[in-house]
Design a binder for these strands. Structure first.
Lengths: 215, 215, 215, 215
DNA sequence: TATGAATGAGTTTTCATTCAT
DNA sequence: GATGAATGAAAACTCATTCAT
């Protein structure tokens, strides 16, 4: 599929590596790092056990690549909208929509990210924190743009807003789709974004700020 | 240290179990279930390996108790405020404050919950989901009360609001304190709650709802 | 039962030891040496685990005493008839009858001897071989007496006859009662002894001897 | 050693399994199931500990195979004569001779069967009882043939005769060779068979039957 | 004397990794 | 490059025995 028949010699090279990586991703999404064995991966990839070590340095290395493989497409679903020139409101909507699609497509695959198993590796934990930080910066930039454009209140704490928006995506949406297996609808999503955009407070008391002042 | 000076003789009675449990909690917070060994736990608890099995049936059993030990106080920090008779706004503030205190006290302990490692045990996964559901119901009830009292807008999706509030606590606050090691201040917290209560949208466009209508 | 009330101090001494021994016998008859634990024995004897070691040097020592305790009564069932003054034929009948009674009484208890688990201890193996040798000598003496009295053929190999008679008791009878759980009747027993006494050969060819001569 | 000189390259192919099995048989014949360790077996087989598990599922599985390995040839020594067309008397002689050869060849191997250690596994116990039953049936059929041919008395209890003949082989002969380490000679064997065939009773009283009648 | 909490030596088993073919 | 047989380090767990009370 990847190579033509004419390039016979190299056909298998790329193939084997990919076969193994895909098999590993499948396995790691089903089970714990420690519950997945190299033997299983090799069997699913239909290669010999030794072959795994031709392409990956160790089980841990293979896991890290599997993780990145999944994480990349996930991060994409956020970042590809960050430089849109439409309204910020529209951008948030776009991000959330793209993210939902991805969640539904990969309902199972994203387990990997949601139960955060990989965090047990110190190194990956750092990697994840770094990536989240980058993402957060992208989002806060977006919000800054929104403030400049007077779309967004100027007195909010931008970092907090960014973090809450990330949580809204990864944890609220992700949790519903992946863990609770809920078939999240556009309408619910709008309601969710509405809360983020307009708050839950009643208009009567709109304008109040936390901390709650003595009444 | 745990016992009074007067009761020197019985110093150790009942202590061993606690020593072991605390050692286990410490270890499980540092590392994976599979990376923690009974030998290490026994060493840290300063007891023999066999003693661990006098008090806990298995490594898995010990893990579950360690998990509950941490989780219980965590759930407390939410639920003890749910039936307050003050304003809902005040209650949310109280929950967040109590939660922050707990996070700071246990900076390490709560790792356990945040990185969700335990979810690899099917049984615990179910337990966690159930507890979260209970908590969610408590919070949605609170919001319903708020709507009746006209504190909260009547057109929000209560479940979504509840989920977002939980994420605000567990992931936004928890992530900052525990993972990013940020010394979260009351002021930032107020800003965070302000976003949840008033939204990020500017007053000019206040009232708009998602999805974004074609402009 | 063993001590009167007046001798209160020593009542428990003998009691505890016996309690433990009896409990051990019961357990060892139910299960393998390695499958029986000191804890179980202590529980069944209703004493503390440490108490077992007050009376018996080790698990192995306790096993040996348990074994002897059973073996003694077993050996009795043979030897008490060896010096009878009746005919040898009658004596054999008496031995077999007594043995059968014992087998039925102790259907389970004698497992211990029949599956010969204890032979795994070199020392006990030697003990068993010695005892069997003594018994064999008692029986060959009996047969010698029978030859003198012309009850028994003078041209038989006495040792072989003794061994076959022992096997008849321990293995044929024992196997049927204990392993195959057959309710052995007097009549069958007579048939068995008849074979031992008269052989299976037909009268026509009676008198032939082994090895079979070329025909 | 096991392979021919010409096929040097494949010397080890399939060998490991046999090495391990033979080592296991040796160990299990020397000691208890529980006293033999996988480590010892691996050492004696000159393979790594893990290799044992490449070929056998567990220690228990290895034991069962070791047992069958010994038991099969043992059962053979009886059954291969059961359908001979010579006289029954000759057949019994043949069985006993073959059995003696086997006993001498395998002096140690057959320990396994004689001390019946394996009976601690319920499953094997059942297997052994079944096989013995089959064997018994083979032998009783033989005796029935002997009765038809008037070689054997028609008034004997065939089952009893069969059981006694089995005991004669397994316990009398086996015990002498394996346990008592006696160098059993053809002559003694003939004497033994003579007793089984002609009984021990003197001709004078030949014809008497058990139970002994009141005198 | 009687106890049972504490212990650690010893066992089976798994599985990532190596390396000869 | 591809393989999979061979390996042994590492881990959970058991239980006879000790010893302070």
């Amino acid at each position: 599929m990847l190579m033509t028949v004419t390039n016979n010699r190299k056909k298998d090279f790329g193939n084997k590596r990919e076969q193994i990586l895909l098999a590993a991703v499948e396995m790691f999404l089903e089970k714990d790092f420690y519950q997945v064995t190299i033997t299983e991966i090799a069997e699913r990839a239909e290669v010999g056990k030794g072959t795994v070590y031709e392409y990956f340095s160790s089980k841990e290395g293979l896991f890290k690549e599997s993780f990145s493989y999944c994480a990349d497409s996930y991060l994409q679903s956020f970042s590809k909208h960050l430089f849109e020139t439409t309204s910020v409101k529209q951008t948030l909507q776009d991000i959330v929509n793209t993210h939902l699609e991805l969640l539904k497509d990969n309902r199972n695959k994203l387990h990997l990210l949601f139960n955060e198993r990989p965090l047990s590796f110190q190194e990956l934990q750092a990697w994840v924190i770094d990536r989240r930080q980058e993402l957060l910066e992208g989002i806060t930039n977006l919000f800054r743009k929104g403030i400049d454009a007077k779309e967004i209140r100027s007195d909010i704490d931008i970092e907090m807003a960014g973090r809450l928006f990330l949580a809204l995506n990864c944890v609220v949406m992700g949790g519903m789709v992946v863990l609770d297996n809920i078939d999240l609808e556009e309408e619910q999503l709008s309601k969710l974004l509405d809360i983020f955009w307009n708050g839950i407070g009643n208009l009567q008391v709109r304008g109040d700020r936390f901390p709650v002042s003595a009444e």
